[in-house]
Design a protein around this nucleic acid. Structure first.
Lengths: 223, 223
DNA sequence: CCTTGGCGTTAGTTGACCCTAATGCTGAGC
DNA sequence: GCTCAGCATTAGGGTCAACTAACGCCAAGG
């Protein structure tokens, strides 16, 4: 009734809507899914017909409530799978993304329930991303504070690490930057680079990366 | 590179080749996959081009070695998944077939290895069907002895129960007819019906069903 | 206010997988 | 050895999800 491709489109629209603000442009969506704009445009026609998105010509696309529910269902599958693969099958949490991306479209409700039960109904996945509830309530959309916004002297705890780029994810993991890790900001260079102390070691990170790390402040620097 | 559909065709050809003997007819394949003969015929053209099957016009189709290897890979995935779902996720072994049928096409080699390891490299699935090895050696093709061939007084142990029809499977499971179960043949009626004792209870089964149950003889009736 | 570059959409094509209708082969019985 | 039923194949067409090429909208700068 709803193809794997359509689910991918709805999931991508959901993410883009959260990240940027306002309606999602066709080209941004096409980029995210690695298809051409006409392809995305025509799929959006179909999704609109079926009531999953609303569009205004030349202005952009927004999910309807139904579309959001489908996206949340797929994201729930994805994050439960990532958690399961990591915790029960011994995968490294930096490599589960692709596997989950394929399987998320093919598991039954029964499978979802049993996996959730085996994990004791987790509320976050191994990256620190929240797992939508079984009832698919909308997730809190507030953006959260990133490491990029911190000043020297601030001490924070890592809450989430974005799972967009597996390369970066793996690198950060090797540097010890994982959910629940304590991080102290040492220096912020004017060239878009930050130096932090993690687990005794000093690590330098570019803005592109620190923006992907969501944190909770533990101590503010004294002014 | 090889679509889920193509894998389904190769798996079905493999089964039909094992069950019947000689090359597989287009209509038998079409029946098994619930498509029309022309659809099957044209897919067979494609599979022949790619070297997975050999055909002789109007005579039938046989798997090549490559085709057999693909079929065994898919069957390995299927049976590992059935075993895993049953043993680690608490599914009933009568209901895992459909889930495995979808997931078998979408798991990675890494996933396959980890599932096999988690199960301690099993050699049979919960139905008693053999699981192809990681190296995908051809399986022993000898048909095995079925419950249908037994005489009153024979005592056997159930080795495999075919997983074709989930309804029958569930019924048999409820009657206690599962792998490793001891079964005593009480009576064979001329109307294609057999009565057996299982776990103290008497159960009557039609030929259609007893032919699906493979057994190992424990005691022969005295003549 | 008009042009132009960038983005969005429309039109037309392709490949995978399905269908129905029409045609071709083959073997069993007369 | 011919006919005909039954199965296989060919022909033609539909849908889905992708593409390229062509065209339409719109806002920013001259």
């Amino acid at each position: 009734m709803l193809s794997a491709k359509m689910e991918d489109y709805l999931k991508a629209i959901y993410r883009l809507q959260r990240d940027g603000d306002g309606p999602v442009t066709t080209s941004a969506l096409a980029d995210a899914l690695d298809v051409t704009s006409p392809t995305a445009s025509s799929m959006l026609d179909t999704l609109e017909e079926r009531g999953f998105v609303e569009r205004e010509k030349y202005q952009g696309t927004r999910l309807t409530r139904d579309g959001e529910t489908v996206a949340l269902e797929v994201i729930r599958h994805h994050r439960l799978l990532e958690t399961y693969l990591t915790e029960q099958l011994g995968f490294d949490w930096t490599e589960v993304h692709d596997e989950a991306d394929r399987l998320e479209h093919h598991i039954s409700e029964e499978f979802e329930r049993r996996v959730a039960a085996a994990l004791d109904d987790p509320v976050v996945d191994p990256h620190g991303d929240p797992i939508p509830s079984e009832t698919l309530e909308p997730l809190d959309g507030t953006p959260g504070i990133t490491l990029a916004e911190q000043e020297p002297g601030d001490v924070v705890v890592v809450e989430r690490v974005s799972d967009r780029d597996p390369e970066e994810l793996s690198y950060l993991s090797k540097q010890g930057i994982t959910p629940d890790q304590r991080v102290e900001v040492l220096d912020v260079a004017p060239i878009g680079m930050m130096t932090v102390r993690v687990d005794g070691d000093e690590v330098s990170l570019p803005d592109r990366v620190t923006e992907m790390i969501q944190v909770i402040t533990v101590e503010e620097a004294e002014l």
